[in-house]
C-alpha cells in the first residue's frame, strides 16, 4: 500500500528529527548537564526558589 509506505517514511523522519537532532543538540536536561549530584541540583533549585522578587 502506497499510503502505508509514506506514513512509515513520515514516522521515521519525524522520530529522527525529534530524537537525533532536537533532543540531542537542542534539549539537554538542564539540571543533569550542569550539576553532578542530586544534592547540587536541589541546591540550585532552592537557590532559584529563595531569590526574592527584587533580585530576579
Amino acid at each position: 500500500m502506497v499510503i502505508g509506505r509514506s506514513l512509515w517514511k513520515i514516522i521515521a523522519i519525524k522520530l529522527f528529527i525529534m530524537f537525533a537532532v532536537l533532543k540531542l543538540f537542542f534539549f539537554p536536561n538542564y539540571l543533569t548537564t550542569n550539576f553532578n549530584t542530586e544534592h547540587d541540583r536541589a541546591e540550585h533549585v532552592l537557590d532559584n526558589l529563595t531569590r526574592p522578587p527584587s533580585a530576579r
Binding site: L7, W8, I10, I11, K14, L15, M18, L22, K23, F26, F27, P28, N29, Y30, L31, T32, V45, N48, L49
Partner: peptide
C-alpha cells in the same frame, strides 16, 4: 502516524526550559 510522539516534545521542554518546575 503523523501525530504519534508529538507529545514527547512537551517532555523535552520540561527538562530544558522548565527545569525548576520539573
Amino acid at each position: 502516524a503523523i501525530g504519534v510522539a508529538t507529545g514527547i516534545i512537551l517532555e523535552f521542554q520540561f527538562g530544558t526550559n522548565w527545569s525548576n518546575y520539573s
